[in-house]
């Protein structure tokens, strides 16, 4: 099974470091969430993997071979983004054909099904479509290319709620019938969280969280109650962040000591991905020890 390995990747823009040292492994047949605040370098990282941005420091390999200037590797990687990577003057159905010649294959039957489901007029030029429909055309291509690693940079930008739901449903279905890897960078975390196996959070130019969603769900908790009791319960355990309101405290923790007896008056709630993301990437944050 093929794996993409990213090691020691650095990238500066105008002397300003964006990616400081990024190390990641992207496994086959997974759905990843690539999360991070605005401007943190998610798109840059995806562009590097897809050979659209050059780097001087670090490597990205697929099965041990560098993916840079490597047509064979790049044929297995697809990047869908809002950047106008496709010819804007082309009609959508012609784009489908163009992609087929570029990648050697294209699931035309599925593209037809998706165009009908989204009510996309494939005889219009890409440029003439609304923002939402330009995204839809891009998405249809991303779901129909024969690639093993599909990178989706802001896949639902401009899509209304119905079209977003339809996209998530189609993604679940196509992933189920034809497993491959999707890496999704999005700010609409709650909507996509059920689909993800694993999340990467990028903060301050580095990967600050690299974890299976199930592990996060098992031990990630919001612990609320009288401050002294919460502190006592979490003695010696690393805590992501705490908030106080008078004598009440809420602590956000990824390694909740569930085996300890919970003091009366203290409550445990699940920590959803959105909340987790906010706590991990909070500016004043950092791992406090109680």
């Amino acid at each position: 099974m093929s794996t993409i390995t990213i090691s020691g990747v650095q990238k500066k823009y105008h002397q300003k470091p964006v990616l400081k040292t990024v190390n990641l492994t992207i496994e086959p047949n997974q759905v990843y969430g690539l999360l991070g605040r605005n401007g943190v370098g998610k798109s840059t990282l995806m562009r590097i993997i897809a050979n659209r941005t050059r780097i001087k420091v670090g490597t990205v390999t697929l099965d041990g071979e560098s993916v840079f200037e490597n047509e064979q590797a790049q044929n297995r990687i697809y990047l869908m983004s809002t950047a106008k990577l496709l010819p804007q003057e082309e009609k959508v159905y012609k784009l489908f054909k163009l992609i087929k010649t570029m990648y050697g294959d294209f699931d035309e039957a599925y593209a037809k099904h998706l165009a009908e489901a989204f009510e996309l007029d494939t005889h219009r030029k890409l440029r003439k479509l609304s923002t939402g429909y330009q995204t839809i055309a891009n998405l249809i291509i991303a779901l129909c290319v024969p690639c093993d690693f599909i990178f989706l940079d802001e896949p639902v930008l401009g899509l209304d709620a119905n079209h977003r739901e339809l996209f998530y449903q189609e993604l679940a279905e196509t992933f189920s019938s034809k497993p491959r890897t999707f890496v999704i960078a999005t700010h609409l975390i709650e909507e996509v969280s059920g689909l993800l196996n694993h999340v990467f959070v990028i903060a301050d130019g580095k990967v600050s969280l690299d974890e299976d969603v199930e592990v996060l769900q098992q031990r990630g908790r919001q612990i609320s109650g009288p401050a002294a009791l919460v502190q006592d319960y979490l003695q010696g355990v690393p805590v992501l962040h705490t908030t106080r309101l008078g004598g009440m405290m809420t602590a956000y923790c990824l390694q909740t000591p569930l085996e300890r007896p919970l003091p009366a008056g203290v409550s445990l709630d699940g920590m959803n991905l959105q909340r987790l993301f906010i706590e991990v990437t909070r500016k004043s944050g950092g791992h406090d020890e109680i």
Binding site: V31, Q169, A172, E173, F175, S176, G194, N197
Partner: peptide
């Protein structure tokens, strides 16, 4: 089926 449930509720089929 796994696929039908995954699709309907937008869940990962592995889940």
């Amino acid at each position: 089926s796994t696929t039908a449930m995954a699709r309907q509720y937008q869940l990962n089929p592995a889940t």
